[in-house]
């Protein structure tokens, strides 16, 4: 088995599963958003890993350099990061509103209050 060649992907999967675990197993809404961020970053790492070429340099053209890493994943992820923070902000805004109406951001307490009504 090619340990060195696949190590990056394994870490990506580990990070992705940690994010997934936080989202499904932990009840605090802020913590869930952190879990989503972990999940999201693991996908970023996967894309950037795939774009890397051994011995290449950053895709900024200079004289006398022949080998560059793939610029396409960089473009996709660069915009995804900024979109990611914008959507996380939207999620946090929802959490703030939930806190104001339910006085709690724990999922089970919110469910209980919903059922009481």
């Amino acid at each position: 088995m090619n340990f060195v060649g696949l190590f990056n992907y394994w870490i990506v999967m580990v990070l992705m599963m940690i994010g997934f675990y936080i989202v499904i197993a932990q009840g605090n809404l802020v913590k869930k958003l952190v879990g989503l961020t972990l999940f999201q970053t693991s996908v970023f790492i996967m894309y950037i890993t795939m774009g890397k070429i051994e011995g290449a340099t950053a895709p900024i053209l200079v004289e006398g350099e022949a080998l560059y890493s793939n610029p396409l994943p960089h473009v996709l992820i660069l915009t995804a990061i900024v979109v990611g923070i914008a959507t996380t902000a939207l999620g946090l805004a929802l959490v703030v509103r939930i806190k104001e109406s339910y006085d709690s951001i724990e999922e089970d307490e919110i469910n209980r209050k919903d059922q009481e009504c």
């Binding site: 950037i48 774009g51 890397k52 340099t57 950053a58 560059y68 890493s69 960089h74 992820i77 660069l78």
Partner: peptide, 8 residues
């Protein structure tokens, strides 16, 4: 940075 993705 290690992966050459300086912009990212």
């Amino acid at each position: 940075v290690m992966m050459d993705a300086v912009d990212v």
